[in-house]
Nucleic acid binder design. Structure first.
Lengths: 218, 218
DNA sequence: ATATAAAGTTAGACTTACCTAACAATTTTA
DNA sequence: TAAAATTGTTAGGTAAGTCTAACTTTATAT
């Protein structure tokens, strides 16, 4: 049985390394920043997780999840995304409210609960942010994804999901008129600061590079 | 903000003292037994809870909840019973499975979540064990209750709720053919060991005094 | 009414998860 | 390639919540 904290470290590592095969390793500082703790704290936990065979790690080396650790991380992710879907679909939470509560709910320990919840929700494939929900067996559909920042001028794309789940970002997304499945046309990109002019439902907005990098499109 | 542990101590105290005005105080050992920790551990926590003004307590004296502490305990109870109802009604958990998972869910911190859940469930008044669910404002209907052990021979009564929520007891209750709203006729009571002969739906069973004391009837 | 039993308290220790401060290794860059 | 910057590690400390062992107070029973 893993503690909530251990689960959060595995989830953090998965977020930093597991989703993109191009960057399969993370560093101590990087993980510390992501989890809002100090590097020394991460270092302690790395020893513990290594000893439990959940990560691969050597002193001064990079960190990666073991198959077992990855599996555990995906289980937590499954729970997180199912709970988000529940809050959004059944309890009328908004897009930007679900993440925080799901951060708590994802640690509830009950195999039966999560399978019944999945069934109750009709086996959803994506969460309210458009992210794929891992299957009960741990399979996770992971298509290569492009961000809005990579789309060339004049092209139109469809918003699939968001990378950042913070309330402030999501509220901003709504303000710009965007949502899952929105069609976005890239009108212009400033040479100077990579600001993007985009058109959504006939409305033109200017968004930053940082913003564009957090919108996944197809 | 209270920790899960602090919430559990308040809940424990409420269980031992708050439900029945006849016994408004508890002791250290009693609480320790109820929470499955050692008296020394309880003693430490009592100091903390007193300092937070959640309990009344003097060295070597009895323990009781302050109005604030009682309020907090009832909030946890409300969450516990709403989650039990959710698991039972929406996720097809059985009677004896809901308690354990609700012990975890009751600590999720989100005012909005619990009010939305209450709404989603149609503002239920009792949980799957027949216990009253406290209202959002903290009001708790508390009728004087009788147990099956107090019913005289020949009388018929109706099962309202159970006192013990453990899986083993609840499974036993089902085995005897009992459930919320069952009509129970008391056929006989042994002088020797207070064993009770009861009739439910035409079926006669013999149950112990201990069993009968955990069935609330009207 | 006093001895024994029961209940309650204190002191000291352990684990988890965190911190700061000092130091070591590695990477970057001038 | 050596100095500077970054990254990672170690040592020692704290708070929460638990324990055991020894002790004190209160309650019970003859």
């Amino acid at each position: 049985m893993l503690s909530n904290t251990e689960e959060n470290y595995l989830k953090g590592l998965f977020h930093l390394t597991g989703e993109d095969p191009a960057k399969p390793e993370a560093g101590t500082n990087e993980l510390a920043t992501h989890l809002n703790v100090k590097p020394a704290t991460v270092n302690d936990m790395l020893k513990k997780l290594k000893q439990k065979k959940l990560i691969r790690y050597e002193k001064y080396g990079k960190i990666s999840l073991s198959p077992e650790g990855r599996q555990r991380a995906i289980e937590v992710l499954r729970k997180h995304r199912l709970w988000e879907t529940f809050l959004y679909q059944k309890l009328d939470f908004t897009w930007d409210e679900v993440h925080e509560v799901a951060e708590q709910l994802e640690h509830i320990q009950s195999k039966k609960l999560i399978e019944k919840l999945d069934q109750f929700l009709g086996h959803p494939e994506v969460d309210p942010h458009g992210e794929a929900i891992p299957a009960a067996n741990g399979e996770l559909k992971t298509q290569p994804r492009k961000t809005l920042a990579e789309i060339s001028i004049g092209k139109t794309c469809k918003m699939m999901s968001v990378k950042d789940n913070t309330a402030s970002f999501l509220q901003y997304v709504v303000k710009v008129g965007l949502g899952i499945s929105s069609n976005i046309k890239v009108i212009d990109r400033q040479e100077y600061d990579a600001m993007l002019a985009i058109e959504v439902d006939g409305k033109v907005s200017n968004v930053s590079q940082k913003f564009a990098e957090n919108i996944f499109v197809a």
